[in-house]
Amino acid sequence: MSESPALDGLRVLAHPIRLRVLSLLTGVAMSAAEVARELGETQANVSYHLRRLHEAGLLDIVEEVRIRGGLAKRYRHDPESGSWFTSTNPHEEQLLLATMAEELKRRGEFRVPGQRGSTTDTEIWVDRETWEKALEQARELGELLHSAAKPPRTRGTIPVSATVSMFEMRRR
């Protein structure tokens, strides 16, 4: 019996290389070879992850180009494609959150000391209206950053990290 696309999608997302691929392909369409060079991974490994992300509906093939007698697919990520991934399985969501936390630790190693940034962490009680407003602002932040994404090392750009995970908690 096949699992739901949403549940399979959470599993697909719960891999550090795949999170990096999605981030990279938000700003530009790239082939497996180009992604592999950028991430310092093997082309075979990246090809596998690209296929999984494409099968889950998170990557689009935007063009196919002939390279040395072969056909190279160029993939691009539409950030809106992930908005339908949900799960009622706490294990699946925990797996994704753990992967995001590990990726945040990896990115933290590249933080430029002394440069402006923003960090917030909270576990609080708020009214429903405030919560809904905060969710909307987080969605807008994601849209702003994703829509402005450029190819790596584009003149006038800087590499940045943004990880946001907001969720309603059950009462203890």
Rank of each mutant, 00 (worst) to 15 (best):
L104W: 10
P79C: 08
R106G: 10
R111I: 12
I17Y: 11
G156R: 10
R111Y: 14
T163W: 11
E34T: 11
H146E: 15
S47R: 14
P113Y: 01
S83K: 15
F167L: 10
L22G: 08
I61L: 09
L25A: 02
E102S: 08
L59H: 06
H146P: 00
P159K: 06
R68F: 05
A6E: 13
R153E: 08
M166R: 02
M166F: 06
R37C: 02
M166L: 14
K73I: 02
K133F: 08
L22P: 02
M100I: 07
S118V: 14
E103F: 06
D8P: 06
L53H: 01
E140M: 04
S165V: 07
K105C: 09
R20Q: 04
N45V: 14
L50Y: 03
E38K: 10
R171V: 13
R107K: 11
P16R: 04
E38P: 10
L71V: 15
V12P: 01
Q94S: 02
E63W: 09
Y75H: 05
R51E: 09
G57A: 04
E41L: 14
R107N: 13
E55S: 15
A162Y: 05
G114P: 02
V46I: 11
W125T: 15
M169I: 09
G27D: 00
N89T: 03
